[in-house]
C-alpha cells in the first residue's frame, strides 16, 4: 500500500496537506537530518527531500547556493540514500518524495537508482527536468520498485498535456503557482483556480502547490484557490542556518493553517 494513501485519506476526510522540503547535506549531513526530524516532529504530512545538484535549473538562488555549499561540504548520493533511511526510521507513515535532477538518476544507472529508492523507503520521485514525454525512460524501473513518479503542472499546462501527465503520474501533482523558479516571491498566476479545476477533471491525485508558498496566509490562499495542500522549500532552506526553533514554530503554524 502506497504511503501516499496517508495524504489522500487526510484529504478525503476534508483536511489539507503540508509537505515541506529539506535539502539533504545542507549545510552538512547532520544538520539536514536534524531539520527533517524537526519537520516530522512538528506534524508535517509528508516530506519533499532534495538532493543537491550543481545546475538546478528549476530552482532559485536560495536552493542553488545551498546546494553548492552541500556539495562543497562533501555531499554524495550514497550519503543521501543513507540519510533517507534514517529519516524513514523516524516515521513509517508519511510519504517521502525525492526531488532531484535527471542527470543524477542517469549517472547512478536508472535501475540501480530506483532500487536504491525502494531500499531507502522513498515513495515517489520528482525529476523537474524530465518532461512527461520522456517518462518512458524511467517508468519501468520506477514501477518495478513501487516508486511513483511525481510530475509538475504549471499555469501553462494545456488539457492535452494534463492527460499525458495523468497517464504517468503517481503520488500527487506538484502545482507550480507561477511561471519561473523556486523562491519565496509571491507572484501567483491568475490562472491558478482554472489550473486546479483542470487537474481535478483529469486525475484523482492530490494537487499540492509549491513555489512561493511560505506563510500561513499564502497557504490559505492556495487552499482557497483549490489546492489540496502546499509545499514550502526555499523558506525552510533559509531558516536552516538560523535559530533551530524557527523551523519548528514555522512548521507548526503551517500545519495549523492548512488544517484551517
Amino acid at each position: 500500500m502506497s504511503r501516499y494513501k496517508f495524504i489522500s485519506d487526510k484529504i478525503a476526510g476534508g483536511g489539507h496537506i503540508y509537505m515541506p522540503y529539506v535539502l539533504l547535506g545542507y549545510p552538512d549531513l547532520e544538520t539536514s537530518f536534524a531539520v527533517a526530524k524537526t519537520l516530522i516532529e512538528s506534524g508535517v504530512h509528508g516530506l519533499e527531500i532534495g538532493f543537491p545538484f550543481r545546475d538546478p535549473a528549476a530552482d532559485g538562488p536560495v536552493i542553488e547556493k545551498a546546494g553548492n555549499i552541500a556539495i562543497d561540504n562533501g555531499f554524495k548520493v550514497n550519503d543521501g540514500f543513507a540519510l533517507i533511511k534514517k529519516i524513514r526510521a523516524l516515521s513509517n507513515d508519511i510519504p517521502l518524495t525525492l526531488m532531484l535532477y535527471y542527470n543524477m538518476v542517469l549517472a547512478r544507472g536508472i535501475d540501480k537508482f530506483f532500487a536504491d529508492c525502494k531500499d531507502a523507503g522513498v515513495d515517489g520521485v520528482l525529476i523537474p527536468d524530465m518532461p512527461p514525454e520522456r517518462a518512458d525512460t524511467v517508468l519501468d524501473a520506477a514501477r518495478a520498485n513501487d516508486v511513483d513518479l511525481v510530475f509538475i503542472a504549471a499555469p501553462t499546462t494545456t488539457a492535452e498535456r494534463m492527460d499525458l501527465i495523468a497517464s504517468v503520474a503517481g503520488g500527487f501533482i506538484y502545482v507550480v503557482t507561477r511561471m519561473g523558479i523556486t523562491g519565496t516571491s509571491e507572484h501567483y498566476s491568475d490562472k491558478l483556480a482554472a489550473l486546479f479545476s483542470l487537474i481535478k477533471s483529469k486525475t484523482d491525485l492530490p494537487a499540492i502547490a509549491g513555489f512561493g508558498v511560505s506563510t500561513p496566509e499564502q497557504a490559505q490562499k492556495m487552499i482557497a484557490a483549490g489546492a489540496d495542500g502546499v509545499i514550502t522549500g526555499s523558506k525552510i532552506v533559509e531558516m536552516t542556518t538560523q535559530n533551530p526553533d524557527l523551523i519548528s514554530i514555522h512548521t507548526q503554524d503551517m500545519v495549523k493553517a492548512v488544517k484551517g
Binding site: F53, D55, N103, L106, A107
Partner: peptide, 20 residues
C-alpha cells in the same frame, strides 16, 4: 560521458554522481 542537462542528452564532463 553521457549526460542530460540544458534540455538535451549528450556528453558531459561529470563525476560519478552526475555533478557537472
Amino acid at each position: 560521458t553521457v549526460a542530460v542537462l540544458h534540455g538535451m542528452k549528450t556528453l558531459g564532463l561529470q563525476d560519478e554522481d552526475g555533478q557537472i
